[in-house]
Nucleic acid binder design. Structure first.
Lengths: 224, 224
DNA sequence: TAGATTGTTAATCGATTAACAATC
DNA sequence: TAGATTGTTAATCGATTAACAATC
């Protein structure tokens, strides 16, 4: 496998993976890059190129065998590898994720929840063991936790992230409004702040609106 | 303003915007592109280029005035524009978002929740008015809803998205596992499926691990 | 075989980085 | 003024798209 796969390509492959999972349940056996492209809103070129990052898969001239391609991506990107994760911050969002059923199907297991509020830890209803935040270093090492969700207030986010990383966490999905950074290239952070995402969408809409206004002005100018 | 701003640049500007909001509260008045880059994990070049997409801001040679830059981004990207949003799917994630306090600070107002389960609508505790899913076309038009969160099961996602778009929604934040597509370039969709994000992180970690294994093999090869 | 479709190289496109003149 | 820092053009880098030969 080519190691220098690009980030966008890697993301597309993970999306493809979940699409193939669905398709394999539908009974369909083979699929062409053109069909996949249509379902994806990308191009057949891109899909073939992405797949080829993972090395030869064969089937040239006859489309991809869905189950074979699925297993190939699974195997090359090690998506089947089971890893353990924790949730830090058990407010509304955090506790919703804590009891998210879909983790079971994926290779991921949530093995711990953390919160700084001891009363909350005492009253929370969950099957997952929960701990006070100060036990992060101990528990993360003990349970060999590699991934974490961060759902704490902005002011606490970077500090908690630093502690998680120090304890050995390699990947963080950050729902808090703080933009986390880490200069260790082996730690991967995905910032997904809802308000920020809405701001991006709102800006896209505003730019579209502006384009319409501009083209109307242009039209007037040409017709006077 | 240059209309052809790139998507990555637009996202960075929205991030910068929320960073500037924090900074303006800290009492600091001026900041250089180099300082911003450090906080961001990007380069000073990129930051200056991004800012210049929005047109002249002045202050050449003396850093950026935090409040002025904040207001400038706000104004040019119309982030201050108040828009209305709805949440479709009031399960754990959806209802957590429904009562997310931070919306109040942003220009966004959640004006409706939707779910197909009538019993749930009857018992849910919230100040936001809730409606059955089949009322989407009516309510979206009536309340002029432009943005939506989608937190429904995968099998329902594309159908609901189509209905939202038909009724006039221009931006969707999709928490469901389905990868939504829409060929209308004026509709903006952000897919943020948690399992998929974890898969991407997991793949990144696996590739890093593979790199280490490979470099060890290389080392052995060179020393035999 | 003929048609369809992949694999892979080449060409284009776009974004980031570098450099430096203009400016405070 | 001198030092610092932006604004903007040019150079590099990387990703996507196109093209076509290889393959089923």
């Amino acid at each position: 496998m080519d190691m220098n796969i690009s980030k966008p390509a890697l993301i597309r492959l993970c999306n493809l993976y979940s699409l193939l999972e669905e398709l394999s349940l539908s009974g369909k056996e083979t699929i062409s890059s053109a069909e996949l492209a249509k379902m994806f809103g990308s191009s057949a070129h891109t899909i073939r190129k992405d797949i080829n990052f993972l090395g030869e898969i064969g089937n040239s001239g006859a489309g991809y065998k869905i189950k074979k391609l699925y297993a190939h991506i699974d195997n090359e990107l090690r998506l089947n590898k089971s890893r353990t994760a924790c949730i830090v911050g058990l407010g509304r969002i955090g506790s919703a994720i804590l009891s998210y059923e879909r983790f079971a199907e994926s290779g991921l297991t949530i093995v711990a929840g953390f919160d700084s509020d001891i009363n909350l830890l005492d009253t929370i209803q969950t099957d997952v063991p929960v701990f006070p935040t100060y036990e992060i270093p101990e528990i993360v090492k003990q349970k060999n936790i590699e991934l974490s969700v961060l759902a704490v207030p902005a002011h606490a986010a970077q500090d908690i992230a630093d502690r998680l990383i120090l304890a050995g966490v390699k990947g963080i999905v950050n729902f808090s409004p703080a933009i986390l950074t880490c200069n260790d290239s082996r730690v991967h952070i995905k910032n997904m702040d809802l308000i920020n995402e809405f701001n991006v969408l709102s800006a896209c809409i505003s730019l579209d609106e502006q384009k319409i206004v501009d083209s109307m002005k242009q039209f007037e100018l040409e017709n006077t």
